[in-house]
Amino acid sequence: MNRLLRDPAFLVLPLALFLLVFYLLPVVQMLLRSTGADWSFRPFVDAFSSEVTLKVFWLTARIAVIVTVLTLALAYPLAYFIATTGERTAMVLLALVLVPFWTSILIRSYAWMVLLGQNGVVNGFLRWTGVIDAPVRMLNTTFAVYVGMVHVLLPFMVLPILSSLKAIDGRLVAAAENLGAGPGAVFRHVIVPLSMPGVLAGSVLVFVLSLGFYITPALVGGPSDMTVSMLIAGEVDLYRWDVASAIATALLIVTLVTLALFGRVVSLERIFGGAR
């Protein structure tokens, strides 16, 4: 017992137990359920014989890709500005990125409902400025899904890009200038390639998180904006546990395959290990 206590590995025990009981066992249970009682994989057949399931998988993947691209397009310039501006401005901007990060997704999604609704702030403002006469339908559209998800996921893209931009040695920029590179060439040939690890890391995070998104699309999306998670929830509501498990397993496989593909490009350690 004494020896056991001296081994630091024993400190991991509580967490390991917690994960075993509340994470690993349910996952195993889900996997077993999805195979059917007699290893017939009947739940998979049931799930994927429906055209809806395939369509929802396709829609979810499309949303994930578009959200990833939009997030990257917004996050890179922001991260670049934060990395290059003065310390005070950088701190304020970083706080603006992070504060929503610490707010519950539920609350942020409700906030978008208030903002985008028929009588919401955005419609009110547009009517006040005279851009539109009648309120435009924004809530419960695919547009709202993109807005909400990009907002929620932005920090996951900004932070890795910012950290890889900050890791770039300023002397490399000086060297490039000295060798004849103007501002555009420095950006293209030095900044962008050296920040790629951050871009890839952020993209994987956002893409994978998008695949499993539930609350935001459920609250602000329209009837056609169904994601895989919503499909699973629907099956659970119908007490079709086996089919729900099969769809969840399929989503898990898609996620793992995505991670494996990206892992070939950049090591996962680099993404999940934070720094550098």
Binding site: D169, R171, N178, A181
Partner: peptide, 29 residues
């Protein structure tokens, strides 16, 4: 500006571009 001074410079830290090969580094200017 530095980019148009046409002076060669060797930095204390070498400042080689880590994502380029030796050839690409030298070909950069």
């Amino acid at each position: 500006p530095p980019a148009r001074r046409n002076v060669g410079m060797v930095f204390q830290s070498y400042a080689l571009f880590p994502h380029m090969t030796v050839e690409q580094n030298i070909a950069f200017p």
